[in-house]
Amino acid sequence: MRILGREDVRTALADLDSTVIDLVRNAYVLHSQGKSDLPFSTFLRPLHRSESRIIALPAYLGGPAPVMGLKWISSFPENVNRGMQRASSLCILNDLECGYPLALMEGSQISAVRTAAGAALASGLLNAGREVRTVGLVGCGTINNQVVHFLTQVHEGLETVLLQDAFPERAKVFAAELAAEYPDVEFKAVTLGQALTADTVSIATTDSSYWLDLADYPSRPDGQVILHLSLRDLSVSSVLGAVNVTDDADHAIREQTSLHKAEQQAGHRRFVTAEIGALLDGTAELPAARTVVFAPFGLGVLDLAVAEAVLNLAEKRGLGTEVDGFDPGSHKVTSNLAGSAA
């Protein structure tokens, strides 16, 4: 089994940067075509930390390069106040023939990258050719850092990014860091109302209180695309008043997401217009709308698609460490029988 630590994964992802959006696109389409097996995620919540959780996401993705495994990811929001990352993760890949483990790798970077790549893919798709010059970021953390990276690939005309955070000083620091990395783009720390005037807005916060009512911000532009990545920020009325796109309705409309709250209030799911895989393969289309919200649950098949590419590159470049002893060994009886038959 190959073990890939944080730096191994970072090196591999840097080399794969230009291909990640395509990996995510292909995974979405394969899932939409029924070429995946995706059980519901399991949520583990510590009794003394109701806001924290660990999630297990088993998945199989078919197609020309099938992959099977598990994403195990924790979210402990209080980590941020201690200078730590909110999320940590491991990704396990299994052999498709015997089920033995092939690789164990640090997974939080894969999770962040595939989340952001999926968001950028959705922004390009849902803006339907409209030029995006301004982006708003609500929440100044790891996910939106990656979102900026991939949005600059998808929207080459991007001029200004407006940053807002519950802690304004974080937005100022984040703006300065991004300005140094992307000198051709202007970054401004702003109020929430100002951030919501952007063509596309990415929401990635640790607030799960359904606190944001879009009706309170009438100056938002027509056709605005909102990337609701943290899933529990928008009010029910905001969801019901928008055209909604998700990655998989059965997965996204549960565990008290904003979509789930809307279903509970409305008594139906008809407010979800389409899933992104169907839009990508042309089997669904969107009506014109003042606001389009993309609220992806975050499918494990995306992580596996990127993790498989990371493993393949790691094997070619000699990244990570090969270790023995992580398989159960041979079967005492049948291995002898097989040897006799030979």
Rank of each mutant, 00 (worst) to 15 (best):
R2D: 03
L4I: 08
D8Q: 02
V9W: 02
V9Q: 01
V9M: 01
D22Y: 04
L30N: 00
K35R: 15
K35T: 06
K35Y: 08
S36I: 12
D37M: 15
L38Y: 06
R49F: 06
R53V: 14
P64S: 13
V67W: 13
F76G: 11
M84E: 14
M84G: 01
S88T: 14
C91Y: 11
C91P: 00
S108D: 13
I110F: 11
S111G: 13
S111R: 08
A112W: 03
T115M: 08
A117I: 05
L121A: 04
L121V: 05
G129V: 01
L137N: 02
C140Q: 06
C140I: 02
I143V: 15
N145M: 09
H149T: 02
L151Q: 09
T152H: 08
Q153T: 08
L163C: 15
L163T: 02
Q164E: 07
Q164R: 08
V173W: 01
E177P: 00
A179H: 05
A179E: 05
A180K: 13
A180W: 05
E181T: 11
V185S: 04
V190T: 05
L212F: 01
D213I: 03
L214I: 03
D216F: 00
S219L: 12
R220A: 12
D222N: 09
G223Q: 04
L227Q: 04
H228I: 03
S237D: 14
S238M: 02
G241P: 06
D250Y: 12
R254K: 12
Q265R: 14
R270E: 15
T273V: 09
G277T: 10
E285M: 15
A288H: 07
A289W: 02
A289D: 01
A289S: 14
V292W: 02
L299R: 08
V301Q: 10
V301K: 12
A314P: 03
K316S: 14
G320Q: 05
G320T: 05
D324F: 10
L337S: 06
L337Y: 13
A338M: 12
A341M: 13
